[in-house]
Design a protein around this nucleic acid. Sequence first.
DNA 1: CATTAACCGAGACGGTACGTCCGGTCTTTTA
DNA 2: TAAAAGACCGGACGTACCGTCTCGGTTAATG
Lengths: 213, 213, 213, 213
Amino acid sequence: MSSTDPQTARTGRPRSTAADAAILEATRASLVDLGWSKLTMGDVAARAGVAKTTLYRRWAGKNELVVDAVAVLFDELELPDRGSLAADVQGVVLQFAALLERPETRTALMAVVAESTRDDSLRVRIRDSIVERQKRLVLEGRQRAQRRGELPVEPDTAVADRTADLIFDVIAGAVVHRMLVSAEPVDTDWARQFTLLLLSGLGAGAMERRPGS
Amino acid sequence: MSSTDPQTARTGRPRSTAADAAILEATRASLVDLGWSKLTMGDVAARAGVAKTTLYRRWAGKNELVVDAVAVLFDELELPDRGSLAADVQGVVLQFAALLERPETRTALMAVVAESTRDDSLRVRIRDSIVERQKRLVLEGRQRAQRRGELPVEPDTAVADRTADLIFDVIAGAVVHRMLVSAEPVDTDWARQFTLLLLSGLGAGAMERRPGS
Amino acid sequence: MSSTDPQTARTGRPRSTAADAAILEATRASLVDLGWSKLTMGDVAARAGVAKTTLYRRWAGKNELVVDAVAVLFDELELPDRGSLAADVQGVVLQFAALLERPETRTALMAVVAESTRDDSLRVRIRDSIVERQKRLVLEGRQRAQRRGELPVEPDTAVADRTADLIFDVIAGAVVHRMLVSAEPVDTDWARQFTLLLLSGLGAGAMERRPGS
Amino acid sequence: MSSTDPQTARTGRPRSTAADAAILEATRASLVDLGWSKLTMGDVAARAGVAKTTLYRRWAGKNELVVDAVAVLFDELELPDRGSLAADVQGVVLQFAALLERPETRTALMAVVAESTRDDSLRVRIRDSIVERQKRLVLEGRQRAQRRGELPVEPDTAVADRTADLIFDVIAGAVVHRMLVSAEPVDTDWARQFTLLLLSGLGAGAMERRPGS
DNA sequence: CATTAACCGAGACGGTACGTCCGGTCTTTTA
DNA sequence: TAAAAGACCGGACGTACCGTCTCGGTTAATG
């Protein structure tokens, strides 16, 4: 977010809230048309009908802008109750795949991750705006599975958290790698096979209790 | 590779083979010092003691050059026999994590993947130079586990290939996502937990036979 | 001048008269520190402790502001009676040179003149605020010389005016050119030599009567 | 001049000599159309069909470029033998006035002089490219007058030089001041009156011998 | 052993985008 | 209604790289 601390700025002309929305929308449009590497601040500004300075007043650079512009798209992911844990997992896998099919996400996600390997503040921004936000899907899915009796309730919250993180990385990582690195489609078959692998591991494995043993 | 077609060029001064090595080495050094986005062709040329034209005569651009410079690093991955499938998997996970800890790989891998989302020839180059090459690790590990009797032999080669691809995406994807997206360390504990999840899934799941059923 | 028409503004908060002085003073300070080309409206406003809008409410732009800020400095020029016409001329030459030695005058005068070549209203402003105002020195010097009997009284006022204008351009032009274009010092020797040339010309020449003959 | 030291640069692609001419021509055209203050490096580059970098490779900035572009115009001044010293002086005055009537000279000369008050290297450039070059007119005129017997030969070269400088500043200064500061026309009448004043001063004055006395 | 064609280094070339700065205007709160 | 504050649009700045293009000068295989 452009983090306009409401307490800080009191006097003078306030920042245009309309500009924020227009800029983020223009950023997504430019990503679709040009892709990450060809996207320029000047082009975004022109599309948004805004001066370049207005962009730089709100975002430090292309990376930060794109993270904010794309983060909101990940919030579209939902976890409707499909009746079983397997169906829920398969559903979210396909949903995530559909999101990564969109050109703006496809081109932007890996690019900002790449940049974040050399920029700590960007890494934090990505973690806060995207990663941590979407872990909700894992937590919600588990909760629902536990209510259904498909999964036991893990009493140790540290273990539970660790497992949730692992599941998240496995699901998201596998889908991203399949689509963007291996460059193969994530279709229903793949999703089913992946879900089977994952849930078998979860069920049979009875995730270990003591990590450091 | 810089694809010096031996048939094409017959007469005239041949290309310096020393230059190729110097350029790739300089590229890796520049990646370490500057990272992907700050790396420039001019800088690489200067480090290699070579003119910019010499780079462009051999590679189409920054993307192709970096893929070639980094691809060789992935060949360092090995799969020594650690006695059990679990130990082998855990070993390769930690080895891969160590590779991604190196700044040149860290910054380059995601960047070229990001670029490849808009450049088909680059996508092919990545797949050929990196992805397909490293699937050998999965195949070798499976073969060894089958010899040990830890895994059954899958008679249907299509199913076997499909499963190998899945395993590859899950392992590579989870490690990459954990390290670069979630920005959390891949340590022995995580590797053990991940291996447990994966192998339980493989063993119990008895990967389905008919995909399209 | 900032032309505060007393009739126009009647109601509401009156303009701060202190602001005018502060702005002009800040303008001169900024000229000294930064010179004409680096001087900015924002800097002047900041130095004067005033908002940019306040500047623009009073002056059309940088040119007008600087003319007003500098014009007053020329009013410092005086013509004390030094006993003879030669001494008076030499005195005013050195005084004018000293004024052009000051950085604010030095940098501003030529700059606004340059701008005025493309801006008629600015040309008028310079003529009114600076040029015509300082012709008083020529007129006063002539009057005093005539009282002393050093110069005859010219009966034709048109000829007298024309001659005064010529003298003014010769004196001011020579000093400015020597200092700013030729970039050589105007010292006592030069002033004496110049005065000698000028007065010889005036005395011997017996300025022609009929211009169009 | 863009001072391409022929000894220095030996290797690499040589600078385009055609570009130099095109740039200077474009600069003059831009001065005519836009004037000094509106002239931009980008506009000049565009007119010359040249990249901005090519300008900056040859000139440090707008000031240096404009000095070079207009300096050559001053070389057009000539001193044809009009039969008498008075006619020669009057002729050069009118010629100089005509030169200052041209918009490119008019807007550029005072501007670069203004800038030079804060930039020593620019001051030197102006002196070398314009001022010193045109003193030839004074020297030539004097020589011719001496041949005619209109002026005595000054044996002391230091005095002769000092006098030539004075004459130069008086002529050039008076014309410039009349035209650009006073903003009055320099016509035949004014030129005749000015010449009369100047030559009377020269003849009668019999310029002093010992400066420091 | 001379030719010769492709190579090499150097660096200028036309472009594009950068991120900053300033000019002048507009919008808000405060006096 | 003016003032201070500061955001706004527009546009030029000077720089950095891009990828291409001359240059003069090697360097091997060919003839």
